[in-house]
Design a binder for these strands. Structure first.
Lengths: 137, 137
DNA sequence: TTAAACCCCGTACCATGGTACAGTGTCAAG
DNA sequence: CTTGACACTGTACCATGGTACGGGGTTTAA
């Protein structure tokens, strides 16, 4: 069951142009074509697009996403490299989570101060930086 | 102790042009000027820049950062609005944390499969995504 | 008092991640 | 056998977040 680019675009809720753009960028495999030159996709294409969208929302660039998608286990080959990349990504993600948690705590303190009608510093959000500066970059 | 734009830029490790760009965008307060028109900054400017850089790494746009920096409690007035905004930001941050935690689990599963040297199907990341897709937006 | 090093402003340019448009070809229903 | 919806390519354009450049004034230290 081959899908046209339009069907894939609709299913994944992206623009047709975006799919072609990804193809040009190398994020998307070049699909088979009909004799007339129409692209033909399998169902997996939709999942791939959804993955890309999701990873983008999480702050990964297309370049990084391309790397993520490239991490596949091919019969033992290059498995070490794949694992190293993955573990590095995990570190980065973990650090981002920690930072966001710190920001959340700061915001919660601010909200609490607000409820108590206690005036805050000029810019309480900057507190998030205390003892924080050069961790993890 | 007033700092020149160049000193601030060096201390915060950003480009001078970037500071002026932030000023134009309204992210950065317009500083006092010397008679010759040179910008004069206080120490706080460096912290502010570092916060901006940091928040960007966490995936906030300059627009969002501007909103974050604007959150403060001013003698009772407009307190409700600030609290509402702050709680909304907390939601946003919490959702981002959840998304990243899910991604981390995904990556961990991939790394584990890799360690086991069990060659999986074409794209293990996609597989793990199947039960991942439309949660939480 | 002059050269280096800094600052000013305005404008142009860059990368990323798309999105639109023009001109053309294809397919399927009436 | 035509009309409308869709596809193709190529190129131009958009927003965001900067960065560089040109043409000028200022400060500082030899």
């Amino acid at each position: 069951m081959a899908l046209t680019i339009g069907q894939v675009a609709t299913a994944a809720d992206v623009n047709i142009q975006t799919i072609r753009y990804y193809e040009r960028r190398g994020l998307f495999p070049t699909p088979r074509r009909t004799p007339a030159g129409y692209r033909q996709y399998a169902d997996g294409a939709v999942a791939r697009l959804r993955f890309i969208k999701h990873a983008q929302e999480l702050g990964f660039s297309l370049q990084e996403i391309q790397e993520l998608l490239g991490l596949r286990v091919r019969h033992g080959a290059a498995c070490d490299a794949v694992e190293r990349k993955t573990r590095h990504k995990i570190e980065v993600v973990q650090q981002r989570i920690r930072d966001l948690q710190r920001l959340k705590r700061t915001l919660e303190r601010l909200a609490a101060a607000c409820t108590a009608r206690r005036p805050t510093d000029d810019c309480p959000i900057l507190e998030v930086l205390e003892d924080h500066d050069d961790i993890g970059h």
